[in-house]
Design a protein around this nucleic acid. Structure first.
Lengths: 135, 135
DNA sequence: AATAAAAGATTACATCAGTAATCCAAATGA
DNA sequence: TCATTTGGATTACTGATGTAATCTTTTATT
């Protein structure tokens, strides 16, 4: 597994913009964040620079400006972060977290149905038959 | 809901020790972390100090030493942190996270049964019955 | 051409976090 | 009693993070 650079919370906001669409110029990113993050343009540029240093993003030069794009996938990130989060808060035990959510969060009945369906799938597979990723 | 002080990752390790049993002396905490965190005793003491400053823990004096105990519950913490984590990574949408876990993690059939049971409860309650404001 | 505007590079500065070491006062041991 | 150990308080130092401003170089304006 490749090493994912650490991305701070502020940097994450920039990544989200680039994950949602890329490549984009710095100004486009700045605009996209406007009204939502209350950051000065220079701040966003700093974050972009840091993401470059971390090799989380890269750019293609087009004339005088750069077009930035992500080098890491959001999925990989979410996966990794979730893993370490669960480990940290729940000691790696996923069930307590699931129980927590199922109990505390409001889920629509559609969502509940879908979750049930997924659980059914798992039941069919059986708990000992481990290893396959079906998605 | 009361304001929970921010607890860093290193501090969290100390909190876990105190949540697992309290009150404890600094030395007991240090010992409990030994072999697991590879921290010098002074480091642990620093973390304890910082947790004191943050009012995450407190102590009773007993002679020359202090007995430390948590001021915040682990549950409150897990709750709050989970909330902000999900918000940050999943845009506040819990379902994708649940789906992610149900799919990726290996759950025993017992666990699956329990989760199903919980989902059934929710179904009975109905999806429109909302009652809590969380933001 | 001289000047202003704009993009990216560099520098800034405070706070937090990780990781301790040093200082001081009380208790303990010689 | 004097030196040593030990608990807690204070101080230290590095790197990351939030949040920019300034500098430099190009390009667009007048």
């Amino acid at each position: 597994m490749k090493e994912l650079p650490k991305i701070s919370e502020a940097e994450w906001e920039v990544m989200k913009i680039l994950w949602s669409r890329s490549p984009q110029t710095a100004n486009e990113v700045i605009e996209a964040l406007e009204g939502q993050m209350d950051w000065k343009p220079k701040t966003v540029r700093t974050l972009i620079s840091r993401l470059l240093q971390k090799n989380a993003i890269a750019f293609q030069e087009t004339g005088r400006t750069y077009l930035y794009y992500p080098l890491v996938s959001q999925d990989d990130y979410v996966q990794t972060e979730t893993q370490s989060f669960v480990k940290r808060l729940y000691g790696g035990a996923v069930k307590p977290l699931l129980v927590h959510f199922l109990r505390e969060q409001k889920l629509s009945s559609d969502e509940i149905s879908e979750l049930k369906r997924i659980l059914d799938e798992k039941t069919e597979e059986g708990p000992d038959r481990d290893g396959r990723k079906d998605r």
